[in-house]
Computed example of a mutant assay.
Amino acid sequence: MNVAEVTGNIAPLAFGIATIGPALGVGIVVGKTVESVARQPELQGRLTGLMFLGIAFIEALAFIAIAVAFIPFP
């Protein structure tokens, strides 16, 4: 028996790893938006809209990573 042999389904592990990147990305986007609003409060509406657009793209990439984690490989 090979020591490096992996048996079972490792998709939950891949799911957990796939959520780390988007979580960091959303944190950075929100933090930078708060920082920008603190510097220029008159742009709050425009910055908030851009923040939500960025979060939507980040979450779309997270869903793609999760879907790829569940693709069966031969």
Rank of each mutant, 00 (worst) to 15 (best):
T7M: 05
A18L: 13
I55A: 13
A18C: 13
P72K: 14
G16W: 04
A23Y: 05
G45F: 05
V3D: 08
V30Q: 02
Q44G: 06
V30F: 02
A18I: 05
G21T: 10
A62G: 13
R46F: 07
V6D: 00
L61I: 14
P72R: 15
I17Q: 04
E59A: 13
I55M: 15
E35I: 00
Q40C: 01
S36C: 09
G8T: 03
Q44Y: 04
A23C: 09
P41V: 01
A14T: 12
V37E: 03
A60C: 04
G8I: 02
R46A: 11
V34P: 02
M1L: 07
L13V: 12
V68Q: 15
V29G: 03
P72H: 12
G45A: 11
P72Y: 06
L47D: 04
A69M: 12
N2I: 00
A69V: 10
V68H: 06
I10K: 15
L43A: 07
L53P: 00
L53F: 10
N2F: 03
K32F: 07
G25R: 00
K32D: 04
L13H: 11
A65D: 05
I58W: 02
G16E: 13
G21N: 10
G25H: 04
P12T: 11
A18G: 14
F70Q: 15
I58V: 05
G54L: 11
I17D: 03
A23N: 10
G21Q: 15
V30N: 01
A18E: 15
L61Y: 05
A11C: 06
L53H: 00
M51Q: 03
I28G: 03
R39H: 10
P72T: 05
G21K: 14
T7P: 02
A60G: 06
P72C: 02
L13T: 14
F63C: 12
R39V: 02
L47A: 07
F63M: 14
E42A: 08
F70R: 15
N9T: 07
A69F: 06
R39M: 09
I66M: 15
E5T: 10
Q40F: 01
G8L: 06
G8V: 01
